[in-house]
């Protein structure tokens, strides 16, 4: 479990990035952190594996205070995938790139090999195993970066803007992948502006604004509230905007995903169909 207790953080420049953040993260959790640019999302993510230490309050990873443990040791449990893959890719082949973390953590060569191959397979990158990561497209590089972290099998996976530069099918694959991970008992935290992606995945949403948590709860209750969403400089997902207009037909206003929308609309339409049949 990762616990943040009244965590505040001020950069050396004097900029206050986080203010009294309380947060719990357990296996099986799926959390989306959303908020305007500069709200403190990435700063928060860097606290989870000890890259940044809180100015006040404390962060505990499985009971260990991040101020007392090395980043390397915390990274064994907490995998942080950076937003821009260009900040971490450096190896000659995709295979070496994915193996880098495992080697740093001191795994035996055959374990490294198996783990690398399995991860590449899972992310659909097997065919690029011997390719230079720099020859891949932006979206593929991003997946290699994800693979590089996933290969070490962290208990907590932190993704900074995972959907940027991914086409819709890739996003769909990513969603399924995340689903698989947290149903296996891992914790997944996703930092994103992608309202539609969050609406369809239905995680717990934490809204950050100016370094504070302004709202948290299930995606459908948070993302369907105009005043909350505006605070974090977002707009409601399309389904929520549609259902917001349809309340006069007795439909609920907190619908954000296609799946639930379909069930509710089917119900309404079949009722209407029955009524038309009775009338004629």
């Amino acid at each position: 479990m990762i616990t943040l207790e009244k965590v505040s953080f001020t950069y050396r420049s004097g900029q206050r990035a986080l203010q009294e953040i309380d947060l719990n993260l357990e296996g099986g959790d799926f959390i989306a952190i959303m908020g305007e640019n500069g709200a403190g999302k990435t700063t928060l993510a860097k606290h989870l594996n000890g890259l940044l230490k809180p100015s006040q309050g404390r962060v505990l990873v499985d009971g260990e205070d991040t101020r007392k443990v090395s980043v390397a040791r915390l990274s064994r449990k907490v995998g942080l995938v950076f937003q821009n893959p260009d900040h971490l890719l450096f190896s000659e082949t995709v295979k070496d790139e994915v193996a880098f973390g495992l080697k740093n953590f001191g795994f035996a060569p055959e374990v490294v090999h198996n783990q690398v191959m399995r991860t590449l397979e899972a992310l659909g990158l097997s065919e690029y195993a011997e390719t230079s990561p720099f020859l891949l497209s932006g979206g593929e590089r991003k997946r290699v970066a994800l693979a590089a972290i996933l290969a070490t099998e962290p208990d907590y996976l932190i993704l900074d803007e995972p959907t940027i530069g991914q086409d819709y099918q890739q996003k769909e694959r990513l969603r399924n992948f995340i689903l698989q991970l947290y149903s296996q008992g891992k914790a997944v935290v996703m930092i994103t502006h992608d309202v539609e992606f969050v609406a369809e995945s239905n995680p717990k949403v934490i809204l950050l604004s100016q370094g504070r948590i302004v709202a948290q709860g299930p995606a459908d209750s948070v993302l369907s509230k105009d005043e909350l969403v505006k605070k974090a400089s977002l707009v409601r997902p399309q389904m929520s905007r549609l259902f917001g207009e349809l309340t006069k037909y007795g439909l609920p206003s907190d619908v954000v995903d296609v799946h639930r929308a379909r069930i509710l609309l089917e119900e309404k339409l079949s009722e209407a169909k029955v009524r038309v049949a009775q009338n004629s």
Binding site: F82, L88, N104
Partner: peptide, 16 residues
């Protein structure tokens, strides 16, 4: 700024 981010990213992969 980039240098700092790269250092952070590689430390997150266990580089010491």
């Amino acid at each position: 700024v980039d240098a700092q981010t790269v250092v952070d990213a590689q430390r997150s992969r266990g580089l010491e």
